[in-house]
Design a protein around this nucleic acid. Structure first.
Lengths: 116, 116
DNA sequence: GGCTATCATAACGGCTCCGAAATTAAATGT
DNA sequence: ACATTTAATTTCGGAGCCGTTATGATAGCC
C-alpha cells in the first residue's frame, strides 16, 4: 500500500510542519541534526559515529558535535561499545522518543487537512 | 479528501526526505529559510518583510538576512512596492519554482514507497 | 612487545546566523 | 512645514556550526 500525495499537497504539508516547528522554537534542530535524530530512531541499530557520518555524507566531527548538542537536550544517549571500546554506540532516550512522537503527530495531523 | 498517514510512516517520510537533502547539499537552507521560502511560494501574495516576520514569529532582520541569502541563490526576488515605497514585495523566481518542484517530486516519490 | 590501523574527540580558524539597537527612507498627521 | 509613525535595513557583539588537522585511546597484526 502506498501513500498518494500530489506535489502541491507535499509542499503545503512541508510548509505547515516546518512553520509550526519554527514558531514553536522547542529544540531548534538544524536539518543535519534532524537527519541524525531520525536515523537513530527509525533505522535498525546499532548506530555509530562512523556509520552515521557515512550515511549522511559528512565528516565524523559533525556527528560528534551533533551528538554533543542533542545529548545536552537529552534527545540521544552515548555509551562505549564493550566489545570494541573504540566504538561509541548511540541510543535512544525517553525524551527523544516523546519528541518524535509529538513530531509525527503534527505531521499526521497536518496531512489530514491537506485537501479538505 | 484527506491524506492518510500513520505516525511511523510520517517519521520515515521525514527521515528519507531530510536525509536526501543533507546528502545532496544543493542549497543547504536552514529550517527558517525553508519556512520562508515555502510561505512565499505556497501562501497567497503579497509578501512583505513585516508580514513574514509576524507569521514566523521572528524579528524583521531575520527575514531581511534570509532574503539576502536566498536572493543570492536566486530563489526569491525583491522589489519596492510602488504604492508605498517603504514596503518590499517579495516574489518568486524561475529557479525557486524549479527547486521546489524538484523538492515536491522528492517528497511524493518517497511517500510512494512508504508502506511497500 | 612494537608497529600500524581505526575510532572518536579536541583544537583551530572561518563562516553564518542570531537578537537588540541604531539608522535610513517614506508616509502620515497636525 | 515639521514631528511622528512605520518599514526595512545596517551595525554590533555573541553563539553555533562547518571542515581540516591534530590528539588520544583501543585493537589487530607481525
Amino acid at each position: 500500500m502506498s501513500v498518494a500525495l500530489k506535489p502541491s499537497q507535499a509542499l503545503n504539508l512541508w510548509r505547515d510542519v516546518v512553520l509550526n516547528e519554527v514558531v514553536k522554537r522547542e529544540h531548534d534542530l538544524t536539518t543535519r541534526q534532524m537527519a541524525i535524530l531520525l536515523s537513530i530512531y527509525m533505522d535498525p541499530p546499532p548506530h555509530t559515529v562512523r556509520g552515521l557520518a557515512a550515511k549522511l555524507n559528512v565528516t565524523k566531527p559533525v556527528i560528534t558535535r551533533a551528538l554533543d548538542t542533542m545529548g545536552q537536550m537529552k534527545l540521544v544517549m552515548r555509551r562505549r561499545d564493550p566489545s570494541d571500546r573504540r566504538n561509541v554506540i548511540i541510543g535512544k532516550t525517553v525524551e527523544g522518543a516523546l519528541y518524535l512522537e509529538r513530531f509525527s503527530d503534527l505531521i499526521v495531523d497536518k496531512a489530514k487537512w491537506l485537501a479538505k
